[in-house]
Every structure is written in C-alpha cells, then in structure tokens.
Amino acid sequence: MNSVQTFYPVGQLEEFMSRIGRVLELKGLELAVFRTSDDQVYALENRNPHPKGGPIAEGIVSGHILYDPLYDWQIDLETGLVQAPDEGQVRTFDVKLANGQVWIAV
C-alpha cells in the first residue's frame, strides 16, 4: 500500500457495536465502520455501489459480508468487492487495532 498513509485514532473498540455499522467523518470522507463478530473492524466509504447510490452503513452484517440496506447487494467487507451476480467495488481503508484503540488510515 501507499507508504504515506496516516492512521487516525477514531475511538475505542467498545464504542463500535458488534455487527451494527457506524458513520464517521474523517478528513472530509464519510466512512461506514463495521465491527464484525470476530472483533475485526472494517472501514469502507459510505457510498452504495448500486447506480442509485445511497449509504451502506445500515446494512446487515454476516461474517465478513455486508448486505446493503437499500438493494440487498452483498459486499465483502475486506475487499469492498460486490458479490455476484451484481458488480462493483466500494473503496476500503486500512484499519489497525492497538490496545483497544481503533485507527483508520485515509
């Protein structure tokens, strides 16, 4: 990845409810942040890959798959890739966890 990316602290892990997405604004970008049941955290751009757009943060999370709240498309939280038969990709951002603190790089 890019060597100049900077990680920003965005809160403690406990502030993110399991399997319920949360919207963050970071450096002018709107992010949808998800904590999965295995306590991983994923940050994606909060923009629906469907041609009609809209948010994704309010979808249903199953494992590392997100069912988008508007069109029920399936999005891989790790890669941002939309699963077949639909197509598209959501921008993803690197996340790291250290001592219970969540950091996101933009």
């Binding site: 409810m17 399991s18 399997r19 319920i20 009609k52 757009g53 809209g54 948010p55 309010e58 979808g59 249903i60 999370v61 709240p69 508007l70």
Partner: peptide
Amino acid sequence: EKSSRFVNERMNANIQKDG
C-alpha cells in the same frame, strides 16, 4: 437482536434512496 433487524426496523424510520 438489533443487528438482525432490517434497517427500517432498526432505525424506526423508512430509509430512502439518498439515505
């Protein structure tokens, strides 16, 4: 279980296409 509710029932409001 809130995380198993469809968005509208979780938010107690109907989501529109622009969010």
